[in-house]
Amino acid sequence: MQKVLITGAAGFLGSHLCDRFIKEGFYVIAMDNLITGDLKNLEHLFKLETFEFYNHDVSKFVHVPGKLDYILHFASPASPIDYLKIPIQTLKVGSLGTHNLLGLAKEKKARILIASTSEVYGDPLVHPQTEDYYGNVNTIGPRGVYDEAKRFQESITMAYHTYHGLETRIVRIFNTYGPRMRLNDGRVVPAFIGQALRGEDLTVFGEGLQTRSFCYVDDLVEGIYRLLFSDYVYPVNIGNPDEITIKDFAKEIIKLTGTKQKIIYKDLPTNDPLQRQPDISKAKEIIGWEPKFDRNKGMKRTLDYFKEFSEEELKKSEHRDFSKK
């Protein structure tokens, strides 16, 4: 049985990846320091003999006994609320954490896939964003701690590939949504759904003309899985190119939830990207991937998940400042 280490495993994407690799017959070693992750996302796996969990910060030395075939590095705060609150940890997990895991992959002769992000493009001057676009990033702005952590992550990963011959893969993830997102993490999907379920007006920043492209989590996991087992070592965009303005998306949420809230407007956060749309030509060509879920179907599934939250859980998130990613 092949073994895979998944970091950030108790988070939104990490937990879905654990499910997928268990389903595919792998022995899964999950690792998370739970700074933003939640063990509830993994509790259904603890009874399995092919699953184990390590509570560990990958920014510190990482040791996994025995053989290891694959590593998926998904440990990182991924929402503005988190990485603005813990900027040093965000930089460390992208730099020290990535270095530690690349070293582990080298020791174990394992293939490693690094989770990068569309944030490496910053506030893009090219639209849609292709993998050969270098980006427009403010290194010292409030979002720089996340953007630059991911850009460094890509650089050191390619250095390990070219210098040590390590088998590496890099996925650039665009906005993703689905069950197990944290209601209060500040990203646009749970922010809008949470406000709608609490009966609040929906908060849009700026004029709401900035765009996002939302990919359902099942589609994303499929793309990541295919990329891991491909022969392509350079970054690949994985996301849904179906672009929508934030204002129109807020209207969709109001219609979906059947609520009658208004849309209210606040100042646009610093360096908030005005356009975000992936060019997925490489994903189509190299791994034969494109998203299958339309936004309406995916959002219904996501809404059903959040409807299970108690009133107390909904109220816990209402004081948060929802800066949109």
Rank of each mutant, 00 (worst) to 15 (best):
Phe21Gln: 04
Leu303Ile: 05
Thr157Phe: 00
Thr36Asn: 13
Gly298Trp: 04
Cys215Ser: 08
Gly66Val: 07
Gly186Ser: 07
Ile280Met: 02
His63Ile: 08
Gly258Ala: 06
Phe205Asp: 13
Ile170Cys: 02
Ser116Asn: 04
Leu268Ile: 14
Asn138Tyr: 10
Tyr83His: 08
Phe51Arg: 06
Gln2Ser: 14
Thr257Pro: 03
Lys3Phe: 09
Thr302Lys: 03
Asp231Pro: 01
Ile112Cys: 01
Asp38Ser: 15
Leu42Tyr: 09
Lys297Thr: 14
Ala105Pro: 00
Glu243His: 07
Gly122Lys: 01
Gln277Met: 12
Thr245Arg: 09
Gly94Leu: 01
Thr36Trp: 11
Asp321Ala: 13
Asn237Arg: 02
Leu34Pro: 11
Ile224Val: 15
Val236Ile: 15
Asn138Arg: 11
Asn136Tyr: 11
Pro235Asn: 10
Val145Lys: 00
Glu49Ser: 15
Ser79Pro: 04
Glu207Pro: 05
Ser230Asn: 05
Gly135Glu: 07
Ile81Leu: 14
Glu252Lys: 15
Asp201Lys: 09
His319Leu: 14
Asp132Gly: 04
Asn240Met: 10
Ala30Tyr: 02
Ile86Trp: 12
Glu49Gly: 12
Lys251Gly: 09
Phe152Thr: 06
Lys40Ile: 10
Pro179Glu: 12
Pro87Glu: 07
Leu228Asn: 00
Asn138Ile: 08
Asp248Phe: 08
Pro235Phe: 03
Tyr163Ile: 14
Gln277Leu: 04
Gln261Trp: 02
Tyr232Met: 07
Asn55Glu: 15
Pro291Arg: 08
Met31Lys: 00
Ala9Thr: 01
Phe53Met: 09
Lys47Met: 11
Thr139Lys: 14
Asp279His: 06
Gln153Arg: 07
Thr162Trp: 11
Phe152Met: 15
Ala9Val: 02
Ser317Asp: 09
His164Arg: 12
Lys324Glu: 11
Lys251Pro: 04
Gly206Met: 08
Leu104Ile: 05
Arg182Asp: 13
Val145Tyr: 09
Ile193Glu: 03
Ile264Tyr: 05
Asn237Val: 03
Asp321Thr: 15
Gly208Asn: 07
Leu197Ser: 05
Lys109Cys: 09
Glu313Lys: 14
Pro190Trp: 02
Lys292Gln: 14
Pro269Asn: 07
Gln277Asn: 13
Glu167Pro: 04
Asp32Gln: 04
Asn33Gln: 08
Gln2Glu: 14
Ala78Ser: 15
Glu200Val: 09
Pro80Lys: 06
Ile254Arg: 07
Val188Ala: 11
Lys266His: 13
Thr98Cys: 06
Asn136Thr: 10
Arg180Tyr: 12
Tyr232Cys: 04
Glu52Arg: 07
Gly141Arg: 05
Ser281Ala: 14
Ile254Thr: 06
Asp57Phe: 10
Thr176His: 01
Thr130Tyr: 11
Thr259Cys: 10
Lys260Pro: 04
Asp201Val: 08
Val126His: 11
Ile244Ser: 02
Thr259Phe: 02
Ser76Tyr: 03
Ile88Lys: 13
Asp279Cys: 12
Ile156Arg: 05
His319Ser: 15
Tyr83Ile: 07
Leu209Phe: 13
Val58Asp: 02
Leu84Glu: 11
Leu202Phe: 06
Tyr163Cys: 13
Ala9His: 02
Ile173Asn: 00
Asp304Met: 11
Ala9Lys: 00
Tyr163Glu: 15
Glu52Lys: 10
Thr139Tyr: 13
Tyr134Met: 12
Arg172Asp: 01
Thr157Pro: 00
Ser15Ile: 06
Glu131Tyr: 03
Glu290Ile: 07
Ala105Trp: 00
Leu101Trp: 01
Gln2Lys: 15
